[in-house]
Amino acid sequence: MAPVTIYLSAYCPFCHRAVALLEQKGASYESISVDGKPDLRQFMTEKAGSHTVPQIWVGDTHVGGCDDLFALERAGKLEPLLAGDK
């Protein structure tokens, strides 16, 4: 499986939904909390081009946020991406 990285905040319901979907798919992921870490949030913003959480990467592919992750799932593209089949 491709490595998954998710930048998130503890109080973000969209973050919780994204994590739940990743867990449902059996994906292992690294979660990085940006709570109270302005330098880390700035790094995430520069890397993602967005300041909102969650921001999700599967391997080197920037997925985007929760809605983007669920759109991939609906399109049948999430599992191949997680499997490393871009």
Rank of each mutant, 00 (worst) to 15 (best):
A2D: 09
P3Y: 07
P3L: 08
V4C: 08
T5M: 05
I6V: 13
Y7V: 11
L8F: 11
S9N: 03
A10G: 08
Y11N: 10
Y11P: 12
C12Q: 14
F14A: 04
C15N: 06
H16W: 11
R17V: 02
A18C: 10
A18N: 06
V19R: 06
V19G: 03
V19L: 12
L21G: 08
G26K: 10
A27I: 11
A27H: 05
A27Y: 10
Y29C: 13
Y29A: 11
S31Y: 14
S31Q: 12
V34D: 01
D35R: 09
D35S: 08
G36P: 05
K37Q: 13
L40D: 05
L40Q: 04
R41V: 12
Q42F: 04
M44K: 05
M44H: 03
T45K: 10
E46N: 10
E46H: 12
K47L: 14
A48K: 10
G49S: 15
S50T: 12
S50V: 08
H51S: 10
H51R: 13
T52W: 14
P54N: 02
W57H: 01
G59A: 04
G59M: 01
D60N: 14
T61F: 12
V63M: 01
V63Q: 02
G65A: 06
D68E: 15
D68N: 13
F70S: 04
L72Q: 01
E73Y: 04
G76K: 01
G76A: 03
E79A: 08
P80F: 00
L82I: 00
G84R: 07
G84E: 03
